[in-house]
Write a protein that binds this DNA or RNA. Structure first.
Lengths: 242, 242
DNA sequence: TCAATAGTGTCTCTAAGACACTATCAG
DNA sequence: CTGATAGTGTCTTAGAGACACTATTGA
């Protein structure tokens, strides 16, 4: 008969290294808008495996520094962009025996959005990181299964744009409704009807006015500027748009 | 100067146990409908930590037997229910330093649905597993953060019911529209208007007729039976319901 | 007959789609 | 003035909500 042991005693003798366990990473697809295109931040791998290939920013959890998965993602992004991103959410987790040549591996995939301007200078100074237009990413041979991860995050971005105000996070505040519509269109990869767009957004009450601005291109009627209202981030429309 | 090594050489000398890594588990919130209540499958823990408490089914990945995370979830459910569940999807992944007394731990949370009948006998024979009405789960002191995980899965279930036909997976086929409406109502925790419900489901073309059946309770007009049409599983409504 | 369950007709209401219209600026 | 951009008026349409109605059975 085996002797019953207490939980305290059990924990004392427990060592995770006695068991086979998968690699665990966090990867982030960080998107922005620049020059009228959707762009993703990629990092050139400096170490094996897949050294020299482009990959999503990410890496291992720091068991001391990171209190949660989310912290790992923010930390990795801060290293590459110099800022805390305004939108960071988990897309899902992919785990299988093939995705990493080192063995069974699990990655928690995050999707993040950031306005381009405040990151540009810092990213230029990080020699292994750069923005890539989403259309060009398909032509690269990304490390691991990161091409699939980019697609997963891109899909999530597209679908959430259809029933939230997610795109506010790729714009610098304040912004005009015209700019916001362009952002929606680029993230959804669709063109939207102007009146429907404005009615939807304004009726939702998720924006507050923030003065007047100059029109795009300098000529034309001046524009009303807006910024997101407090707690508008999780507003959900009851119909999908577009 | 360090010598450049090849990827093959790198992989040969790589040992994951050289690095600190979190525990990784898969947990599944399996729901069913029985006696007009939503129920969730729980398992009484036979080992430390939290021995004797009720927990979600789940556990460690078997690096040899499981090709993907999904396989771990199906395997664990098969052990407890004796069947392959008809709906299994990932809800998200929770990872932090506090959720498991053994240390930094990550769990991939899945949500699953199954009709009650085909599982009942097998589950009765599994002494450590039983269905719990969702309302009673709050009164138990579940292991780890499983109370939160149940809530997360419950929320996902509720929200997806509002724009998909997910509830077809808790019914035995064929079923009547009345039964399907009861399933929607229990999963959404709301009452639905009969005409709106029938119009919505029938117009979507996600069901095919499957003969006639007896009405609930034996008296009354006989009912038309349906089964899900092929590839109707990922049908998305463009408006949320209820 | 009735009670019980299944299923329909039809009006209202909300929000999206279409698209022509007006408004305000620079040059 | 013209041309460019910002913003509106208004009709149509799809689909949900409300709710009274009819249909078909067992007892």
């Amino acid at each position: 008969m085996s002797r019953e042991i207490t939980e305290a005693r059990f924990l004392k003798q427990y060592d995770p290294k006695d068991y086979d366990s998968p690699l665990v990473t966090v990867d982030i697809a960080l998107f922005t808008l620049h020059e009228s295109t959707l762009q993703v931040l990629l990092v050139e791998r400096g170490e094996h495996p897949h050294k020299g290939r482009w990959a999503l920013p990410g890496g291992f959890i720091d068991l001391q520094a990171d209190a949660e998965l989310h912290d790992t993602a923010q930390r990795k992004l801060r290293q590459k962009t110099g800022v805390d991103v305004p939108l960071l959410e988990q897309v899902g987790t992919v785990g299988n025996a093939q995705r990493d040549p080192r063995g069974w591996s699990v990655t928690a995939l995050y999707m993040a959005l950031v306005p381009h301007a405040p990151t540009a200078e810092f990213i230029d100074s990080v020699t292994d990181a750069r923005w890539w237009p989403i259309d060009e990413v398909g032509k690269l041979r990304l490390a691991f299964d990161h091409a699939e991860l980019v697609d997963l995050a891109r899909e999530r971005l597209k679908s959430k744009t259809a029933y939230t105000v997610l795109p506010v996070h790729v714009l610098r505040q304040p912004f005009s409704l015209t700019q916001l519509q362009r952002a929606f269109e680029l993230l959804m990869d669709a063109t939207l009807e102007k009146k429907s767009f404005r009615r939807r957004i304004l009726n939702a009450g998720v924006l507050e006015e923030a003065g007047e601005g100059v029109p795009e291109g300098g000529r034309g009627r001046p524009t009303v500027l807006y910024r997101p209202a407090k707690n508008s981030g999780q507003y959900l429309f009851t119909r999908v748009f577009g």
